[in-house]
Amino acid sequence: MIRSILGRILTATINNSTIITTTTTTTSRTLSHFAFKPDTAAVSDGDTTRMNLFQAINNALEIALVSDPKAVIFGEDVSFGGVFRCTVNLQDKFGKDRIFNTPLCEQGIVGFGIGLAAAGATAIAEIQFADYIFPAFDQIVNEAAKFRYRSGNQFDCGGLTIRTPCGAVGHGALYHSQSVESYFAHCPGLKIVIPRGPIQAKGLLLSCIRDQNPCIFFEPKILYRLAVEQVPVKDYMLPLSKAEVLVEGDDVTLIGWGTQVHVLHEVCEMARDQLNTSCELIDLATIMPWDRETVINSVKKTGRAIVAHEAPLTAGFGAEIAATLQKECFLHLEAPILRVAGYDTPFPHVFEPFYLPDKWKCLEAIRKSINY
Rank of each mutant, 00 (worst) to 15 (best):
M1P: 00
I2N: 09
S4R: 02
A12L: 15
T13W: 15
I14S: 15
N16S: 14
T18R: 15
I20A: 14
T21D: 01
T23Y: 10
T25I: 14
T26L: 12
S28R: 08
T30A: 06
L31E: 09
H33I: 08
N52A: 13
A56P: 01
I57N: 02
N59G: 03
I73D: 02
S79C: 07
F84W: 06
L90G: 00
D92T: 15
F94C: 05
D97N: 09
N101W: 00
L104P: 06
L104Q: 09
C105D: 07
G108I: 07
G115N: 13
A130D: 06
D138G: 00
V141M: 10
E143I: 10
R150F: 02
N153W: 08
G158L: 14
G159K: 02
P165T: 07
V169K: 02
H171R: 12
H171S: 09
H176K: 08
V180M: 14
Y183A: 10
F184Y: 06
P188E: 13
I192R: 07
R196H: 01
G197C: 06
G203F: 12
L204M: 12
L204P: 00
C208D: 11
I209Q: 03
P214I: 09
C215P: 03
F217T: 00
F218E: 00
L223R: 02
Y224H: 08
L226T: 11
P232K: 05
K234V: 10
D235M: 03
M237W: 14
L238N: 15
P239R: 14
P239N: 12
S241K: 06
D251A: 05
T253K: 12
V261C: 14
H262T: 04
Q274Y: 01
N276I: 08
C279N: 08
E280W: 03
A285I: 15
W290G: 13
D291K: 12
D291Q: 12
V295P: 00
N297K: 05
A311E: 11
P312G: 04
A315D: 13
G316C: 00
T324Q: 04
L325P: 00
K327M: 15
H332M: 12
L338V: 10
A341R: 05
A341M: 04
Y343K: 03
H349M: 14
Y355I: 06
K359F: 04
A365F: 07
I366V: 09
I370G: 03
N371Y: 14
